[in-house]
Each structure stands twice: as structure tokens, then as C-alpha cells.
């Protein structure tokens, strides 16, 4: 994405196709993986390559997609956020907590009007993101540790709010966006698409987006260029938490319930989507375009495995192996790029 701007130089490279491909490995490999997986499942199962199933896949990756938008910012800065799933969970629970529940739901909650419930939930996730941001930038705790702690804190708040119970009702706006559809297209897919698009536009066309890439590319140089690196890092942590929160609210509406540990698989899935898509774990390379490809790889894989007849326990292992391969490619692509730049 960012590297496409070297196109004029690429044009002069008469016999430079090999180095060019090498430097683009990070964008090409995920794409090939996607094509390969799709072809494989289409061949293995007649029910895979249908319009209906495409709709399924899109719906299945939507919540992950919303969460992954913010995570892309974080990983581009060479940081990590392990609290995304917990923050999604607690935000989803919070929005239900502030909504009037059926009488059989035994939670001492505080019913408020829908707009207020949504506002409070968003404030909650933003506040948690702010704590992450302060821990990382002001105190200097590595994001890996800081967000690990936040993962536990958010899980704790979730537990206190629902106390082992399940809530069902969320504000009507949320339930429409999470589980309704318009013209046959689920709203949740539309929301995910809009968030991904917005993330892409911010990263590509705004000054802030440029700063994110530069901080990720060389943090020291960003500082010596007079950028407020801490402010930028803090901002991406808050963005990540808010995206997670939005994903959490939509997810709760989509699943039809809000409960503890509902989002646990989303941590791995979101990180996988970003990394499999080719965004560099070392920062500065990749973007939302990569994340979208990563989401599709993951979606096709998860969905496709359901269409073929294999042991459901084996599926877990297969997913792990694919993730490992993607990580290897990610690290390797970085090295190839550095070599191409020698």
C-alpha cells in the first residue's frame, strides 16, 4: 500500500522484476494463500463456492473485521494489543447492562435509554483504551504486558457486571446493526465494510495515518523528526479499544446474548487476520488492504473446514498450522524486503 508510491522507480527497473516481486512478497503471499484455499475448498465441497456461502463468510468475519481495524493501527506501530477481545466482551456486556432486560434475567442492572447505554459503553471502552495508552506511554510498560493486564481487568469488569448470568437485550439500534439486514445484506457486514474503509482512508490519506507508518517504520527517527510519538502511540491504543468496543456491541447483538468469555476466540482471530494479511509485526508495513485479505483467508479457512468432512478437533490444529505458516512468511517477507533494499 504505502510502497506502491515507489512505482515511478519500479517503472525504470528494466530487468528488476524479481527484486520487485521479492519486495512485494508480503502483499502477494496472502493473496496466493487466499486463492489457493478458495480453490481447494471449491474443489472439495460443492456447497462452498455459492453466493449464499459467500454471504455466510462475510457475516462470519464481520466482528473480527471491526476489531481488526483498530488492531491494524496498533501493529503498524510495532505494538500489540492483547486486550481487544476482553474489551469487546466488556463493552458488549456494558451496553446490555444499561438496557432493560426481561424479568427472568437476574442481573441488578441499570436500564437507561438506548442512546445513553451506547454512549456509556463507548466511553467505557475508550477509557480502557486510555488506560492502555497511559500505561504504555507515560509509565512505559511494554504494550504486550500492559494489554495482558488490561485483558484481565476487562474480564474482571465483565464478570462483575453479569455475575455469571446472561443478558439478552441490547438497544434497538445495536440489535438492528448486529442482526438485522437491509436488502438482503446484513447490516453487520455493511458496518464492518464502512469501518474498514474508514480505517483505510485514515491510514492512507491523513497526516495521522502517515505518522502511524513513520512511527512504526523507525520510532527513533520519528522522534528525531519532532513527532509526538507518545501521543501517536496513545491514540492508536484508544482507537484499538474503541474498535474492539464497537465489535463487541455488534457481536452481542449478533449472537443474541451477552455473557462472560463470549469473545475469547476473537483475540487470536483478529491478530491472525492482521498478520496473515501481511502487515509487518515489526511495524511500518502493511495496512487495511492487507487486513481485508487476511480476514478473507481466515473466513474461507474457518468456513471451508466446516464444509469438508474432517474431525472437528483436527480443525483447531489445522488453523494453528496455517497461522504458523503465515507468521513465517511475515518474518521472511521482512527479510526479503531488507535484502531487496541492500
Amino acid at each position: 500500500m504505502a510502497s506502491s508510491e515507489t512505482a515511478p522507480a519500479a517503472g525504470q527497473r528494466g530487468k528488476g522484476l524479481a527484486p520487485f516481486l521479492r519486495s512485494q512478497m508480503r502483499n502477494i503471499a496472502p493473496f496466493l494463500t487466499l486463492i489457493f484455499l478458495s480453490a481447494f475448498f471449491a474443489f472439495a465441497s460443492p456447497s462452498f463456492a455459492t453466493i449464499d456461502n459467500l454471504g455466510n463468510i462475510l457475516t462470519q468475519v464481520s466482528v473480527t473485521g471491526v476489531i481488526a481495524v483498530g488492531l491494524t493501527f496498533v501493529i503498524l506501530c510495532a505494538e500489540i494489543d492483547l486486550s481487544i477481545a476482553s474489551i469487546a466482551n466488556v463493552t458488549g456486556i456494558a451496553v446490555a447492562y444499561f438496557t432493560l432486560q426481561e424479568s427472568y434475567v437476574n442481573i441488578p442492572n441499570i436500564p437507561l435509554p438506548g442512546a445513553a447505554a451506547i454512549l456509556l459503553a463507548v466511553l467505557l471502552c475508550a477509557a480502557l483504551g486510555l488506560v492502555n495508552a497511559l500505561g504504555l506511554t507515560v509509565i512505559g510498560i511494554p504494550s504486550f504486558i500492559m494489554t495482558l493486564a488490561m485483558m484481565q481487568i476487562a474480564a474482571g469488569i465483565s464478570a462483575l457486571l453479569v455475575r455469571g448470568q446472561i443478558a439478552y437485550k441490547v438497544p434497538s439500534l445495536i440489535s438492528t446493526l448486529g442482526s438485522g439486514s437491509i436488502g438482503g445484506i446484513p447490516w453487520i457486514v455493511i458496518v464492518a465494510a464502512i469501518m474498514l474503509l474508514a480505517g483505510h482512508l485514515v491510514l492512507t490519506y491523513t497526516r495521522f495515518g502517515r505518522y502511524v507508518y513513520m512511527v512504526g517504520g523507525n520510532r527513533e527517527a520519528a522522534e528525531y523528526s519532532g513527532l509526538n510519538v507518545k501521543l501517536i502511540l496513545g491514540a492508536v491504543m484508544v482507537i484499538s479499544a474503541v474498535c474492539s468496543g464497537v465489535g463487541g456491541m455488534l457481536g452481542v447483538a449478533h449472537f443474541g446474548s451477552a455473557q462472560q468469555n463470549e469473545f475469547d476466540t476473537y483475540l487470536l482471530d483478529s491478530i491472525a487476520a492482521v498478520v496473515v494479511g501481511g502487515t509487518s509485526l515489526f511495524g511500518g508495513r502493511g495496512g487495511i488492504g492487507n487486513t481485508i485479505v487476511g480476514l478473507f483467508v481466515l473466513g474461507v479457512l474457518n468456513n471451508g473446514l466446516d464444509h469438508v468432512n474432517i474431525d472437528s478437533f483436527l480443525k483447531i490444529l489445522i488453523r494453528g498450522v496455517i497461522l504458523l505458516v503465515a507468521l513465517i512468511i511475515n518474518v521472511y517477507a521482512q527479510r526479503l524486503r531488507e535484502q531487496a533494499a541492500e
Binding site: A2, E5, Y213, M214, G217, N218, Y224, G284, R285, A341
Partner: peptide, 13 residues
């Protein structure tokens, strides 16, 4: 220089 420049980004950036 290493501390000041972004090696993987174009000159204009």
C-alpha cells in the same frame, strides 16, 4: 543517520 531517517520510505516522505 540511522536515528534520523526512514530507510524503507521514499526520499520525499
Amino acid at each position: 543517520r540511522r536515528a534520523m531517517l526512514f530507510h524503507q520510505e521514499p526520499v520525499f516522505k
